[in-house]
Every structure is written in C-alpha cells, then in structure tokens.
Design a binder for these strands. Structure first.
Lengths: 350, 350
DNA sequence: ATTCGCCTCTGTAACGTTACAGTTTTAGTG
DNA sequence: CACTAAAACTGTAACGTTACAGAGGCGAAT
C-alpha cells in the first residue's frame, strides 16, 4: 500500500505540475494534487461514498482538514441545485417586540450545526406572496419558514404546489398536511383562567387575539372550557380588540377600571396589550393584584422584573424557532411532514 | 434590420436545435436562443455593456422580461466571486428586545431594492471572531454588519486586514477609519437632563451603560456638560449598574425610593432598566412624575402607551439598520469609508 | 486459462455566468 | 482601391462541484 501511495503521488505530480499557491482558498483540486488522487475521488471520499477505500477516505479527510478545506457553496449550488439556505419570511411592518429576534436566534442555533445559512426575506402586507414566488422561481432556498400564518394561507398552498419544504409558525385550517409549530393557546387560556380562579377571581374577561386568526379560536375554546369547568362568570368585553392601537386599549382599560360593574380578572393574549391595559386600569385607580388580576403571555421575562403583580405564562419563541428549523430540515431530508407538527405546552411556572 | 434579425434567428435555430422546455427556468442560453444572439452578447446586453448596439440591448431586455429571466446567483458567484450577500453578525445571547428585529427590518428595507440578500450569522460570546473568520475564509459575503461594537474591536481590525467592507453599529476607539452608525448618546444625555431641568428637577442621577463600552463615555460626557450648563447637582448612583440583572436594578430602585436623601430625576440609558427601576421606585411608594422623574431611551413606543409619566427620547433602530446597510453597499461600490459615518441625532419630541 | 464481478479509482461533461481574445461587418481615410 | 479603425457581435475557457460512464486490478468461479 505504501508503494501504491508513492506511485500515486508521483502520478499526481506529473499530471498537475502547476504551483499550488498556498494563500489561495483550497479546493478539491488542491486536495487532489496533495494526495495524488483524482478530483472525483476526493469529492466522493469527503462525502464518505461507498466506492472509496476506507484508508483513502481517512487520508483525504486528514489532508482536507490540514489545508482547511471548505466546499465552495456556489460550486455545489450550481451543480446540484442545493442551496443550503433556509429562508425566513418576515413581515417588516409588524412590531411584535422580541418575538422575531428570539425566533431568529432559535433558528440559527439549529442551523449552526448544519451547512445551512439563514436568509431573511421580507415582505410587505400589500403582497405576501411576493417573497414566496421569488424563492420558488429563483430556487433560492431549500426550505422556508413562514410566520403570521393565516387560517387559509395562500403561501401554504403555493409552496405545497411547488414542492418546496416549509414550516409555519401557527396552524392552518385548510385540510392539508404540513409541518407547523404552534403555541398551545387553548392550554394557555385554560391555565390562565385557573390561575385567576385560584386567587379567588370569579368574574373573568378574555381579551383575545384578532378574531380572524386561528389561534383566537383556540384561545376562546380554552377560556370557555375553563370557565365551565370552574363554574365562573364570563364577563363580556365587547369593546376590546387586540388589533387596536395601544392607545385605544389603554383607554378601554381606564373605562373598565372606572365602571362599577367590572371584571375581577382578565386574561390577555399579548404582553404589549396587557401593559397598555394595566396602564389604563392603574390610571383609573385600580391596584393590580388587589382590585383585579391580569394574566398575560410573555416572551421575555421583563414584565416579571417590572411589575411582578401581573401574572404571566411564558411563550418561548426561541423554542419555536428551533422547532421550525428542525422541522424544515427534516422535511428536506425526506421525513413525513405529518410527524413534524408541534404544539408547545405553555410553561405555567412563571 | 428585419432581415438581419431573421437570419440570426435561423442561425440560432441551426446552432441550438434542442427543444426549449418552457417550464424550465430561463437562462442566458434561453434568451440567446430566442433572440438568435450569442450567450455572451446577451450577458453584455443585460449589463448594458458599451459594445452592444442600443437596438439589440432593447430587444434582449424585452425578451428577458417576457420570459422572466433572473440571473442565477450561483453562476455569477462561482464565476465572479460576487456573492450579493450582506451578513449581519448577531450575538444570540443578548436579549435587547426589539432592537434586533427593528435593525433587521431597516437593513432588509434597503437591500430589497438591490440584488443583495441578508444572511444572519450568529456568534456566541465565547468566540466573537468565529463568524468573521468564517465569512472571510469562505468569502461568503460581500459585506458585513457588526453589532455590539467594542471600543477595541478585534473584528474591525480583522476585517480591515482582509479588505472586507463592513459597517459597525457603534463607534470604535482604535484610530482606524471605517463606516459606522451611532446613536448620539452625548446629545441624548444632554437633552435628557434638559428635560428634567425644565420640570424643575435639580438633583439628578445618571444610570449609564456598562462602563467598558464606548458610548458610556459619550453618555457621561453629555450628562456632565448639561449638568454644568444648567448648574444642577449631580447625584451619584454608586450601586447602579446597567449590566446587572433586572432584579438587581429593581432592588436598587426600591432602595433609592426609600432613602430620605434621594435624587428627583434619573437619566437611564435603556428602556429595560428604566422599567425595572421604575418598578422598584413605585414599590417604595414613589409616584413617577410627582416625586421623581425618569427619562429613558425607547426604541418602540410601548412605554408611552403603558406609562406616559416616564419621559422618553426615541432611539430609532430601523434607521440604524437602513444606515448601516447603505454604508456597507456604498463601501462595496468604492465609496470613501470616511464619508460613511453617521451620528443619529435623538428625536426629542416623544 | 478464461471469464466474471467486485472494488477502487479515473476523466469528461455539465450546471450558468463572465473575462478574454478573437471575427465579421461597416464606414471612413489616404 | 486598399487599408484601418470602430462597432457589434462571436466562441472558448474557466470558476468548483458532482453525475456518469468507464477502466484497471484482482480474486473467484467456471
């Protein structure tokens, strides 16, 4: 074997007599030259292909490591069509503080251990299909992550039609199967009510998400089930609308606080709204935790720092990001999308 | 000219007799076939090269648009080395809510009108150089945006050494020239003090950023200048440390609130800390706006919704993102980096 | 001895683009 | 009329990778 190796080396030298400029980025050719093997062999060896001898593979791997070889993404992509890119499609008009960065962190955390890069693709509400079409037409990603999923989401059908793996943050209601990650808002609402009941609250209101989104339904279901189970009085909040600007919510809070006939507990679906609501309630002279209790979801723990009187249940967007990334990768690798659906149980402590 | 066109078409047909599968993605070859021109000519025409006739260019452009031609990024990248990628290097441990997403939005807003994509490259505090080295070694981006800039930032020297255009969020103190965008913290602190002075506050404290960061110095300078100009009493906050966890800041706030000898105004450098501080002060029974005034920076306007008593001065991270993106692109296009340094004046209204 | 199949390695071509070095055509010059 | 120059176009090669179709060598079966 030693003899064979030497012979190959000489052959290599004869065949590729160019100087290898050592400051250039190494390619397969560099390794081929160094080992005296063919470029193809090196390529197969680094992929651990079955037709390459174990000894050769080891030698190639060693040299590759020595010279710091990194495959050229453009080369791979041009030849195979594989981009090694996951695209996160983001709406740039939403200002849901913290949500996005946490999700991005979760995604990068998973991708860091793979050859995948994360590309951020923005869209405006005026044309949500634009980035999806762009990615499909230019084949610029192997997989896509979608946020702000709608119950009937045209992006989902489009991606399914074009066989591009994806995962959605939030479920859909279209009778099709695809990977998703969703926070269990039914469980959240149920537990929120339970928390209030444990504090002796009996007249409880729900300030839910915008009703056209699917998770508004989940939230309402959990809320109503809990109210029935615990035999509490639903306090209807007609005016309340989480889509409304914070000023309006604050105003609502003040009105509620001033009315003689008011709830003694409110379940809120977003930390931002909870803050605005509490602002209004306090302006009306109420003391949170004494006169009324508020439960809200929170993604970062800042409410706990600031106002421990507000009851919180955690929603972890980093985990969501990790989950979504793992699901897309799994789908790309051929997993059954039906197995890539995750409902995240809310963490009731804190 | 009509005759010429027909002849070319025939030539084209003779030379490339393959069927053009119309569902395939169009390439230069497709357009060459359709126009009867050579691939090279089409390439030059679409780049508006000088050696192509105006009439031909127009025809090529038209057909290109008709078939929906989009240059293949991998092809360009492989041939030219141009990636059309800007990399945003992010620390995934920081939880500075809202900051990151707003910056990302600003960047994508600028890149949307260019062929550039935004890639998020994460790093952990244990090895801040890793992503920078990766990008340089694999030549995987044409430009880089750095956040959390340190006064002596090794990433800056490394990127300068390797001729990779970049821009930093925050200035450095290394005696080298590079593009940056920085919030004018000196001006912020000055205006914050002025705001307090206008409300009759006289014993003013500063709760500044972690002292090892450069903008701590800027903040302190603005604060001290304002205090001198307005002949106010500096109230030293020995215990205060914005690096501390929010719980500690909250505790500090309570202590300050309970002490007989306390400031009547505090300038705070981060909205998060301001909230924790206010939480503590209120716990001690103080009423913001009556017993004490707080000024803080805010990036989203949520404090205004929640607690209008807290005085705020806006810091706009979306603009920062836009600025940083524009600067990197300009540097890539050969602009003088010395002209790409922007100090963002704080917006005192709101 | 021949054939067969297996194992391990090989070169060629192609992905889409552009730099480069021509080539043809037309118009202008002496 | 030859000659040159400019204008407008051309093909070839290369970027780094991998699919594909071999090609040697060698042991086993015939």
């Amino acid at each position: 074997m030693g003899g064979k190796r030497v012979w190959r080396m000489e052959l290599g030298l004869r065949m590729k007599p160019e100087l290898d400029a050592s400051d250039e980025r190494p390619t397969l050719k560099t390794i081929a030259y160094l080992t005296g093997l063919g470029v193809t062999t090196v390529s197969r060896a680094l992929k651990n292909g079955p037709e390459i001898g174990e000894e050769t593979k080891e030698r190639v791997r060693q040299i590759a490591k020595q010279v710091g070889y990194r495959p050229n993404r453009a080369g791979v992509r041009l030849r195979t069509g594989k981009t090694n890119v996951i695209s996160l499609i983001l709406n740039t008009e939403e200002g849901s503080m913290g949500l996005v960065s946490e999700m991005v962190y979760g995604i990068t955390e998973v991708l860091a251990e793979t050859p995948y890069h994360l590309v951020i693709t923005p869209y405006s509400l005026s044309d949500p299909m634009e980035p999806v079409r762009y990615i499909v037409e230019t084949r610029s990603a192997d997989g896509v992550i979608i946020s702000r999923t709608e119950p009937k989401d045209p992006r989902v059908s489009y991606l399914l039609d074009h066989n591009l793996p994806f995962a959605t943050h939030g479920r859909t209601d279209m009778g099709v199967i695809h990977p998703w990650h969703d926070y269990d808002n039914e469980s959240y609402a149920y537990n929120a009510v339970k928390l209030l009941a444990e504090r002796g609250r009996r007249r409880i209101a729900l300030s839910g998400p915008p009703p056209h989104l699917l998770y508004a339904r989940h939230t309402a279901r959990g809320f109503e089930r809990a109210m029935r189970d615990m035999k509490l009085d639903v306090f209807p909040l007609s005016a309340m609308n989480l889509d409304a600007p914070a000023e309006a919510i604050r105003r609502d809070g003040r009105e509620i606080g001033l009315s003689a006939d008011r709830p003694d507990g409110i379940v809120v679906s977003s930390a931002m709204s909870a803050l605005a609501l509490v602002g209004g309630l306090e302006e009306a002279g109420l003391k949170i935790g004494r006169d009324i209790d508020i439960v809200t979801k929170q993604s970062t723990s800042f409410i706990g720092w600031y106002k421990p009187e507000i009851l919180t249940i955690r929603e972890d967007f980093r985990t969501a990001g990790r989950d979504l990334a793992k699901s897309v990768l799994a789908w790309i690798d051929g997993a059954d999308p039906a197995t890539l659906q995750h409902l995240a149980a809310p963490d009731v402590r804190d």
